[in-house]
Computed example of a mutant assay.
Amino acid sequence: MTIHPIRFTGRPTGETDRLPQEIACYDLLDQLGISYDRVDHTAAHTIADCAVIEKVLGAPICKNLVLCNRQKTSFYLLLMEGEKPFRTKELSKQIGSARLSFASPEDMEAYLHVTPGSATILALMFDRGHRVQLILDRPVAEWVRIGCHPCINTSTLNLSMAEIRNKFLPYLGVEPILVELPEEREEVH
């Protein structure tokens, strides 16, 4: 993985090689008066890649999972700590939705305009029909800063979680569901 060693403030100056949805993220953040720093890098595919980016970014990066029920009638974007294991059963119990699985790349593209590896809270701006419910694991909701991709995994933004919760989400009309996912697997006796 290659990371540009400088953390930039704001949007890139040369935007001709950037995806339209990435530019739309910068446009909306700027419109809402949400400041951000940016780190550019080669594609980040894993949480291990994100751990390296965090050192330059200066903010934790969470795991972003796009999920759906079996019937594909309910979709969710789950933000949780990167190293925390994901257990479908625990989340299903808390949100009252059984048989959760990962959403297909086609559904991610249709509702959030992202591809696998690029899911982000910022992609909710494209979910005009409010088909995707945001779920925040409580520790992530309590972070001061959050690192997330601008709908492409070759850049990562350092944002204020307070601005995300108090400006970005209200602008979109999104009310997150808060959950508390366990750190470790409970032993069965």
Rank of each mutant, 00 (worst) to 15 (best):
P5C: 14
P5R: 03
T9N: 13
G10V: 08
G10E: 06
R11D: 02
P12Q: 13
G14D: 10
G14Q: 11
G14S: 09
E15Y: 14
E15L: 09
T16K: 03
D17L: 13
D17N: 15
L19H: 13
I23A: 05
C25A: 14
Y26M: 01
D27V: 03
L28V: 07
L28H: 04
L29R: 02
L29V: 04
D30F: 02
Q31W: 07
I34A: 06
I34K: 02
S35K: 12
S35C: 07
D37L: 00
V39T: 02
D40S: 13
H41M: 13
H41Q: 08
A43Q: 12
H45K: 12
H45S: 13
A48C: 10
C50V: 02
C50S: 10
I53C: 10
K55T: 12
K55N: 10
K55S: 11
V56N: 15
G58Y: 08
G58T: 08
I61N: 05
I61K: 06
C62R: 01
N64E: 10
L67Q: 04
N69K: 01
R70L: 11
K72F: 14
F75Y: 10
F75E: 04
Y76I: 06
L78M: 12
M80K: 03
G82M: 04
E83K: 09
K84R: 15
K84G: 00
P85F: 04
P85L: 03
T88F: 10
K89H: 10
E90L: 03
E90G: 02
L91E: 00
L91S: 03
S92G: 14
K93A: 14
Q94F: 14
I95S: 09
I95W: 12
I95N: 09
A98F: 15
S104R: 15
P105Q: 03
D107I: 08
E109R: 05
A110K: 03
A110N: 02
A110E: 06
Y111G: 02
T115K: 12
P116W: 13
S118P: 06
S118C: 01
A119K: 01
A119L: 00
T120P: 00
T120S: 10
I121L: 11
L122G: 05
L124H: 03
F126K: 00
